[in-house]
Amino acid sequence: MSRPAFDFTHLTVDDVSRHFGRRRALARVSLECRAGETLGLLGPNGAGKSTLIAILATILAPSSGQVRYGSATGREAGAGLRRTLGLLAHDLYLYPELTARENLEFFARLYGLDDPAACARAALARAGLDERGDELVSGFSRGMRQRLALERALVHHPRLVLLDEPFTGLDDRSSARLIERLADLKKDGCLLIVATHDIGLAEHVIDRAVMLQDGRAMPIPDGTGGLRDRYRQAVGSA
């Protein structure tokens, strides 16, 4: 797997705040993530997880503070940075009027990949959708769309993988597959950031977790006991 010209092995979020009008979505969040690490962003609905993911994906600009991809900010890295980002957001960025294969080929072409048809074939196989690749996405279940959207986000082998509630709509088998897929990405040296409130599933995936509550980040302490217990402790002490 070849890496693009702009690349990085660590991500630093430094004192990032974000306001929407008078509403504060993030307040002075700082964190780090390194290649080969999976960082979990945990927290209840409305805690600021999706806002932080959008900032990391360069979709939103922080109101203050900065994000550094290696040593460069998003502005300094420019379009080269976008080649290294893979985002699975709440909205799946799939065209329902196109087939699964057409969607993947379209994004592969947009990313300038060499053989879009081969990329789409491989992605469909990874999503377990090779039999249904020529069906319109509008006929897919939410879980199938989610699997397809994940492969759409990963079709260009990004360095930084941002997943916002990746387990949404997935059955047990698909969730297990996703956990395996994330383990493979980690082995490949990706930086993985997973925002979820499904702590049971997150426990199988993440190396380290940060809890977001009311836009503030607080680390979930290491220690004995399951992630759920430590998360509850952190929520209790917040």
Binding site: A57, T58, I59, R82, D91, L92, Y93, L110, Y111
Partner: peptide
């Protein structure tokens, strides 16, 4: 499906 955002995320 917010696909315009998907387009703008591409390099």
């Amino acid at each position: 499906a917010q696909t315009l955002q998907g387009l703008l995320l591409a390099p």
